[in-house]
Amino acid sequence: MAPVVSTAWLAERLRSPDVRVVDGSWHMPAEARDGREEYLQAHIPGAVFFDIDIIADPDTDLPHMLPTPEAFAHAAGELGLSRDADIVVYDTHGVRSAARVWWTLRAMGYERAHVLDGGLRKWMAEGRPIEGGEVFPRRVEVRPAFAPELVRDAAEVREILQTGSARMVDARSAARFSGEAPEPRAGLRSGHMPGAANLPWEQVIAEDGTLRPAGDLREVFKAAGVDLRAPIVTTCGSGVTASVLALALARLGVTAAVYDGSWTEWGGLPDAPVVTGS
């Protein structure tokens, strides 16, 4: 099944016992928005809220890093997210943080995870039902699982840069990639990893907030100099929009790994190689 599903697909199955809906909305601090508060005001009926900053590794100062499989299994069980159900994740932007939740689910062994194409924005524009308030799901048992092929850490990225065993693809803006614009998080160096390709994540998203069609996506990756036949690892500022690129690649049948720490980790490592320019 495709990694993204349409609003029509979800509307037809909204009350199905085999479908779970997840609001994965998250906002950058500078946006001054509260994803959970907005969820309580309006969400797709039955949706539970997945907070990427809460369901995360508590033992690091890096933002929303993956928790242990055991911790994730407990949190997913509390949200009623069974691996036997089709899990549809959305966000308020269209496709952004929902992709991070989708990738997290995939990394934790969920093979039936999908993103709602166009998210809450498209759902509401079509006049589909919403509700407010808290949702109290029935708890389910979830066994810990992990798919290491979908995740990379700093040590593995160092090896990739030394051996050329994969292509790093950076989802940040061209100005941040080149080092012309400062990083929004204080204390980080500017620039990019040697040999990385730059594909700002907005380029894989259409004007209506949906993921661009497969044909368009192939052209976008080609224009960025990315060979879809080679191993790919996506990166960004903190692992959120890197997941958007991973989702776009999944639409093309390409499985990419995500560098979880991304530039928040890499740009803060004093000995990590960094270059500037385009």
Rank of each mutant, 00 (worst) to 15 (best):
A113R: 02
H114K: 14
H114R: 14
L116E: 02
D117N: 09
G119H: 01
L120S: 12
L120G: 13
L120M: 10
W123T: 15
M124W: 03
M124L: 12
G127M: 12
G127L: 09
G127H: 10
G127V: 11
E131H: 11
G132I: 01
G132F: 02
G133N: 10
G133Y: 07
V135T: 13
F136N: 14
F136A: 15
R138H: 10
R138Q: 15
P144R: 12
P144T: 08
P144C: 14
P144E: 10
F146Y: 13
F146A: 07
A147D: 13
E149P: 00
V151S: 06
R152W: 01
R152V: 08
D153R: 07
E159H: 08
L161T: 08
Q162H: 10
T163D: 00
S165T: 14
A166N: 12
M168K: 13
V169Q: 07
R172S: 06
A174L: 07
A175G: 07
S178D: 01
E180T: 06
P182I: 01
R185A: 03
A186G: 10
L188A: 13
S190T: 15
H192N: 13
G195L: 08
A196M: 04
A196P: 01
N198G: 11
N198T: 09
N198K: 05
L199K: 00
P200Q: 11
W201Y: 15
Q203P: 09
V204W: 04
E207D: 14
T210N: 08
T210Y: 03
R212C: 09
A214R: 11
D216V: 00
D216R: 03
D216Q: 07
L217N: 04
V220D: 00
K222G: 08
K222Q: 09
A223Y: 03
V226E: 14
D227V: 13
L228Q: 11
L228V: 12
L228K: 04
I232P: 00
I232M: 10
I232G: 08
T234I: 14
T235P: 12
G237K: 04
S238H: 11
S238M: 06
T241L: 02
S243C: 14
L245H: 03
A246C: 06
L247K: 13
L247P: 02
L247Y: 05
A250K: 04
L252N: 06
G253H: 04
